[in-house]
């Protein structure tokens, strides 16, 4: 299996604070990789580094064979921030078609993206009239319409009801099955089990680079949250 992303000895500082400490990891192509950790662990900073919008102090980030942020990656990497980024005064369909035109895609691609996030029935509604979860999915559709090879999603399931979360994860895996590489961040450990691969972060350091099954086996528990806690304690004992 090839890697879509390779991060080597990445150091990022914001202000006078070191946010990522010599972080190295890989993201396999065509899989859903979960980036998990508590708030402030450096998830968003790492995602920004992958997208190429984060100034790094040292280390390298290679995405789809090119340095992160290269002009050649511009149309190959999609990034969806936690806050919806869509036009509230346009309908869902108009938003998708607007971004489709900007990305050089047609109306068919826009309609397909709306269907892929389950918003085909709400296509005629103004975005400002949608629920927060629907707005998030509209934002996701606008990123999908560009058909990126790497899709970076920052906490896409925050605020969604359990049914929608399940649906969205199914859609992530469908995209991965079609060849898209997804990096999905979350601070909720029960979402870790839905990922093909896990990157666990804490205080800017990589705690684990594993699969859910490996993590359960290594920590001796089926509860991934408990696995995370055991890893943290083990790290603290080593540090002491």
């Amino acid at each position: 299996m090839t890697d879509a992303v390779t991060v080597t000895d990445l150091v990022v500082e914001r202000g006078h604070r070191r946010v990522l400490h010599d972080l190295s990891c890989t993201v396999p192509a065509g899989r859903v990789t979960g980036l998990l950790g508590p708030s402030g662990s450096g998830k968003t900073t790492l995602m920004r580094a992958l997208v190429g919008v984060q100034r790094v102090r040292s280390g390298t980030v290679t995405v789809l064979g090119e340095p992160a942020g290269s002009p050649g990656l511009r149309h190959r990497v999609g990034y969806v921030t936690q806050a919806p980024s869509v036009y509230p005064d346009l309908t869902v369909r108009e938003n998708a078609r607007h971004f489709a035109a900007l990305y050089g895609r047609g109306t068919r691609a826009a309609d397909d993206a709306l269907a892929a996030v389950g918003l085909a029935d709400a296509a005629g509604q103004l975005v400002r009239d949608l629920s927060g979860g629907q707005q998030g999915r509209a934002s996701l559709a606008c990123a999908l319409v560009g058909e990126p090879e790497l899709l970076v999603l920052d906490e896409p399931t925050v605020g969604l009801d359990p049914l929608l979360r399940v649906e969205l994860w199914e859609r992530f895996h469908a995209l991965a099955a079609a060849g898209t590489t997804l990096v999905v961040s979350s601070h909720v450990m029960d979402e870790a089990g839905r990922c093909d691969r896990l990157l666990l972060l804490r205080e800017g350091r990589l705690l684990a680079d594993s699969t859910p099954a490996q993590l359960r086996a290594e920590s001796g528990t089926d509860d991934l949250e408990e696995s995370f806690l055991r890893l943290v304690r083990a790290q603290q004992e080593v540090a002491a």
């Binding site: 078609r97 607007h98 900007l102 050089g104 892929a116 999908l144 058909e147 079609a178 060849g179 898209t180």
Partner: peptide, 26 residues
Amino acid sequence: TAASLALPAGRTSGSLPAIVGAELLK
């Protein structure tokens, strides 16, 4: 549906006329 979102080869971003059209619509 996901397959229809499969990866394009050599796709280019929107042309200037397409961007102008999209902005006018907006």
